[in-house]
Every structure is written in structure tokens, then in C-alpha cells.
């Protein structure tokens, strides 16, 4: 877990420092796209050779859709009072 945070934070700091180096950022952006493709490919291979995964595709798909429905419903329920708080009660959020 520490490693996840370490690499992310190191990246955020590096990105912050590089924010004006357009060329370097372009290269990093392309490498990001490439590594997402590579990792998802590897993840696919791993999942494909895992019988626990290949034996239960339909069930996994069903759970997945149910989970996203729950997450979307929960988010929408909680955003309704926030909308009222930010956009209705306040005169408008334009004090700056």
C-alpha cells in the first residue's frame, strides 16, 4: 500500500514541477496511454488464465452492474441536498 501512495505522490510532485515543460509532459502523457494499454492487456491475460474468473463471467457481470447501479443511486441521493446547498440557498458562489 505504501508503494502505491509513494509512486503516486512522487508523480504528482514531479507533474507539479514540470507543469511548464510542455514537451516533457507530452512524452509522459503518451507513455501513460501506452502503459494503461499494456497493463490492461496483462490484466486480461492474467484474468484469462484464472479459472476463478473464466468460470463465472455471467455472475461477475451481474454483480458488476448491480454494484455500479448502487454506486450511482447512492451518489445521486446524496448530491440532491448538496445541489440545494450550493445553488439554491446561497446568493451565488461568486464572491471572488
Amino acid at each position: 500500500m505504501i508503494n502505491v501512495f509513494l509512486f503516486l505522490s512522487a508523480g504528482i510532485i514531479t507533474g507539479w514541477c514540470l507543469k511548464k515543460r510542455k514537451k516533457a509532459l507530452f512524452v509522459f502523457d503518451k507513455s501513460l496511454t501506452a502503459s494503461v494499454f499494456l497493463l490492461l492487456f496483462l490484466f486480461g491475460v492474467e484474468a484469462g488464465t484464472n479459472e476463478q474468473v473464466t468460470g463465472s463471467f455471467l455472475k461477475t457481470g451481474f454483480s458488476a452492474i448491480l454494484l455500479s447501479t448502487g454506486a450511482v443511486a447512492g451518489s445521486i441521493i446524496l448530491i440532491i441536498p448538496v445541489y440545494k446547498l450550493i445553488f439554491k440557498d446561497d446568493p451565488k458562489e461568486e464572491k471572488k
Binding site: 508523480g11 504528482i12 510532485i13 514540470l18 509532459l25 501513460l32 502503459s35 494503461v36 497493463l39
Partner: peptide, 14 residues
């Protein structure tokens, strides 16, 4: 994954 996290971080920081 570590490389990916680092690169994701860069795009966020920038």
C-alpha cells in the same frame, strides 16, 4: 503498475 501510478501522478500534478 508503479510506473503507471507515477505517470498518472504526473498528469494530475501538471
Amino acid at each position: 503498475l508503479y510506473l503507471l501510478l507515477f505517470l498518472v501522478g504526473i498528469s494530475m500534478g501538471a
